[in-house]
Simulated scan of single mutants.
Amino acid sequence: MTLLVETTDTQPNEEAVLGVLINRCGKMRMLSHRVVVTLLLQSRKETPCSKGLEGLEKNLLEFSQIAADVLPGSATSTLPRDLKRVLDQVNAVSPSQAEDLTRFVSTARSIQHRLTAPGSATLTQPIEALADFVTTTLLDTLNAIVDGIGRALDHVVSHRQSQSGKQTRMIQSSITELEKISRMIMIISVNASIEASRVGEAGRGFSAVATEIRGLSQAANKVISSLRADYEGTR
């Protein structure tokens, strides 16, 4: 199950991906309880029910898939590479928390295999031990992981806002510089016109050039005004 969230852009929306991941990690609580209940029910049957075993496998597989997305260094994670780096950066999942996820899956798998093994001893004690682990340690771990992913989400939002602020400042600076250049061009054209008038007939050519420069400056001013109006309208 992939975590990619479709957007109008070519890249998935990072905030949306992390939001989905938070919801899925929340679902791991329910999945872990389902696994324990199913194991307990099936262990009380002389012959485990095939439908019950199928449900057990489905829940264990989904839990494992979600865990693979959040475990540091996971080779089967479906998260974008940049988001995996963010999760590592904010320590969303600590080594001990990763061990708890792995422990749950491996223990549940072990009990699952013993359910179908002929002549298997009673499984009540290991299942009860797993249930105690799920309702205490694993629950705390899953809550902490959700908090960790929340920190990653805050990091992504802050970074995006910072980048947006930088772009805004760059645009403002560029427009300001264009306005300065336009004013300088206008001053040059005015000075050229004055100098051309001083030399009379000989400065007619310079006067024509000055007029063209003034026209360019005025056209540039219109473009700059349009840019500023568009920019102010998008803020």
Rank of each mutant, 00 (worst) to 15 (best):
E6V: 11
T10W: 07
T10H: 09
E15H: 02
A16C: 01
L18F: 03
L18C: 03
G19E: 08
G19N: 08
N23Y: 10
N23D: 13
M28P: 00
L31A: 03
H33Q: 07
T38Q: 09
E46R: 13
C49T: 08
K51A: 15
E54V: 01
L56A: 00
E57Y: 07
E62Q: 14
D69H: 01
D69I: 05
D69G: 01
V70H: 00
G73V: 02
P80Y: 00
V90N: 03
E99M: 05
E99G: 06
T107Y: 06
A108G: 10
L115S: 04
L115D: 07
A121I: 09
T122F: 10
D132S: 12
V134T: 06
L138W: 01
N143I: 15
I145W: 00
I145T: 09
D147R: 11
D147I: 14
R151V: 05
V157M: 12
V157I: 15
S158E: 14
H159W: 10
I171L: 11
L178W: 07
M186H: 12
V190K: 06
S193E: 07
R198V: 12
V199E: 12
V199S: 11
G200R: 01
E201V: 13
R204T: 12
T211Q: 09
I213V: 08
R214Y: 03
V223D: 02
S226M: 10
L227A: 10
R228C: 06
Y231G: 04
Y231M: 03
